[in-house]
Design a protein around this nucleic acid. Structure first.
Lengths: 119, 119, 119, 119
DNA sequence: GTGGTCTAGACCACC
DNA sequence: GTGGTCTAGACCACA
């Protein structure tokens, strides 16, 4: 994993953890990598990973058992998707529509491109 | 005008200037507000507006006559739209499609919301 | 039994043992659960229970017979209550009064809630 | 200001800021000390103050204007008091009542001490 | 072993 | 000047 420059590393790590949960690699109530382990794996300072975990804990995506480690929250997938949906509907879509009107792009064209869209 | 938290203010101001040009409020080769005037209007530090103008000058949306002020570039509208189109096709659309798949949102739903979308 | 997040688990376990003594479930000079047994019961690492027992031993609530186990001190109930009273008068009450003033809560309201308070 | 040992310094600083707001020393929408300034004043590392400010920002007690500083939220006093009330009613009071029953302390006695309570 | 906190010092974008 | 992020390294309580 390599990091983009325009987003804080700890947020990118949080996103990375989200992905692994969404992909089902890390299951509910399963222990995730310890702060030090993930820091090693990502070649990053443990403090930075710690910050990601704190962030995810606030978002209720992971929880902590003291002295043992961090665990995937039971509702993690639901929580993550809800957050993404929220953002998509309230921010991304309106922006999209506005841009479409401005550039005179119709839904038909979008649909056409959607067909061809693979991944 | 109030500013979002997650984007640099000078970029938001640049966007605001783009809007006024696109809306035809500021016409080609017309002088736009001076740095100080716009700073007053937006309740912002003049340095910040200056930075926006420099940014827009780089993008060839405005140009400068020394000692007089900044002016809308002749091709400003075309330039702005080209940039937006570029970004729309290469970044926004792929993101849209990816998110739709992830959240199980179909084009129908997008279309439905597009109908209701006013402004 | 499940543990709160803001207090060390070994202290919560100590409190739990206190409760059982106060409730008369464990009587003076009676053997209490072994470290391993209580650890099993509470789904906790034996080290942690050991720490609770050491703590209670310091407080003279329980005592140890080497090779046999831990026993409720003869004066355990008196000791526990004295400690609670001490803390109540010197810490809890002043805090109560301070908070009442700050939040404009009168004794009447406290009394009202006291009525409704069951357990 | 000197720090207790059993609570994280950044939380104690957050409490200290809360106090100053409750006392009316720092008013709504007023700029508070910069991270570096408060760090100097309290003889503490700026990172630690930063952490306090982040914490208070999450709690919506202060907000940030980028490049300018942190400001007291308009509803800060209300927010702080609501949080304190919440905790008082749901955690402190039940504990208080339980202890009273255990120690055979009646409300009368509390009332008596409340009279004498000065500060 | 785990997380949690703190310090020191650095660099950056932004206002 | 402001906050924001990151690193390095330390120490601690807890399980």
């Amino acid at each position: 994993m390599d990091f983009k420059d325009n987003e804080a590393i700890y947020l990118q790590i949080a996103g990375y953890v989200n992905e692994r949960i969404l992909l089902g690699e890390w299951l509910p109530d399963e222990k995730i990598l310890s702060v030090r382990e993930l820091a090693m794996e990502l070649q990053v300072n443990p403090n930075t990973v710690m910050r990601s975990y704190e962030y995810l804990q606030n978002k209720e995506v992971i929880y902590n058992k003291r002295g043992i480690g961090f665990f995937v929250a039971a509702e993690a997938v639901k929580t993550i998707k809800a957050a993404k949906r929220e953002r998509f509907l309230n921010e991304d879509l309106p922006f999209l529509f506005k841009t479409m009107k401005l550039l005179n792009i119709e839904l038909d064209e979008i649909a056409g491109r959607y067909e061809k869209f693979g991944s």
